[in-house]
Design a protein around this nucleic acid. Sequence first.
DNA 1: GCAGGTGGTGTACGGCGTACACCTAATAGG
DNA 2: CCTATTAGGTGTACGCCGTACACCACCTGC
Lengths: 255, 255
Amino acid sequence: MTQQLEAARRTPLNRERVLQGAVALADDVGLESLSMRRLAEDLGVVPMAIYKHVSNKDELLDGMVASLIGEIDPPGTELGWKGAVRLRVLSARQALQRHPWARRAIESRTNKTPAVLDYMDSFAGMFLAGGFSADLTHHVMHALGGRMWGFTQELFDDPAVPTAESPAGISPEAQAAMVEQMAARYPNIVAIATAATHEEGSVVGHGCDDQFEFEFALDLLLDGFERLHEQGWSSRQAKLNRPRAGNQQGVPLPH
Amino acid sequence: MTQQLEAARRTPLNRERVLQGAVALADDVGLESLSMRRLAEDLGVVPMAIYKHVSNKDELLDGMVASLIGEIDPPGTELGWKGAVRLRVLSARQALQRHPWARRAIESRTNKTPAVLDYMDSFAGMFLAGGFSADLTHHVMHALGGRMWGFTQELFDDPAVPTAESPAGISPEAQAAMVEQMAARYPNIVAIATAATHEEGSVVGHGCDDQFEFEFALDLLLDGFERLHEQGWSSRQAKLNRPRAGNQQGVPLPH
DNA sequence: GCAGGTGGTGTACGGCGTACACCTAATAGG
DNA sequence: CCTATTAGGTGTACGCCGTACACCACCTGC
């Protein structure tokens, strides 16, 4: 019995182990099933013990995000700003893919933790080092948005119906009927989904190459940044050039 | 007493009123404080009564999102695809700004409700009607991502420190000291934040024009789409042109 | 050898979503 | 007109959650 106690005592549980455990648990069961109680159980400890190492659940999540940021590669120095940004974003993306909970965790945080600020600062540094004005860098960071963490919001994980909601296989006829119904109601979605699945000859319903989509948008933005940078874009100039477009719809009318 | 009962009976509560009440409550107190119990209280009814009109909280949220989608203008027909998309996105943005809970609600849903599919379908329709290939439309929808709902993830609501966490005003010296500390640790963030606040001569800490940031990124993307469309972009061609860039970092390595 | 701090414990509270059994008043069918 | 059905509101209860608070065991330095 004292042996048990000693066993528990051997590694007295510290913030590091708590965070590690939380990350592992979230990896396993998802963020929504990560509870203080469950984490405590995982750590072989009573729930309140955790509170000796993090002051509450929010701080636990902040810590998890910080630990994730630690997995992202530092900015490279070899390539120009464009390559550096690109690589870093893709590294962030890999980290996020290792930890499916991370996107939601990042989005849910109010941010502002030192780890997050560090990351953003070094991120902005890549543009500034590449000769971007502070002005352009600012807007460019905004435009990148969540992409700088390596995520897009996935708005249709699988655009076509084959969600396989029914327990096992559906009869081909039923499936065909469903597709027909879909095509009638959502012709455009079906059209673009079909295009996607055909373009690679892949099995229906899995034709969407996430990595390609991600890089498509990323490069579109990076190319845009590059053009603006080359032509000496400034927000002052931009506002002078098209103030009308901005105001036409920009100001929320009183409904 | 029977009068009370009759009063309650007069409008017997239906799905519509439940949804309306939920939207109003969320507008008031925020999504995280929207609970079935609180909503019930608001509606002058016992919690379980709500379940006669929506089967659970998830469905309630789906309904709220659907009602929000109803506030977004239908696509215009006058302007080309670019103007139509632009206007629609900005209309969505206005709807989202009327309902601060909506962004998180949309992100949290697994989507797939008919209302969401309808919206996405009609959205894709704007590109297709503009002569885009289904292929390009597909990728372009992905690139737009959350922007098609009118939101960016706000990654720094106010980049500089003046978060005014202390109850009232801080002494100017203390504030200056904080800024100095910030500048030492986060030189790049401070640089771009300062650029933003100066560019309009606004008060420190509120120099960031969300609407401008949003349109900046939106137009960057739309311009990119336009260029690709004009030059007959296709994903097959794109994949042939730079397969290396995609694979170099694209495949998640085994850590 | 004892004081104080560090870290794990036990109990308890208020909130949540919601299953289930119940009741009541309106409605439809004979 | 009376009765069976049912739509809509009620009450109770369960198991989860985060965490406040009081307590206690051990280790450390005086």
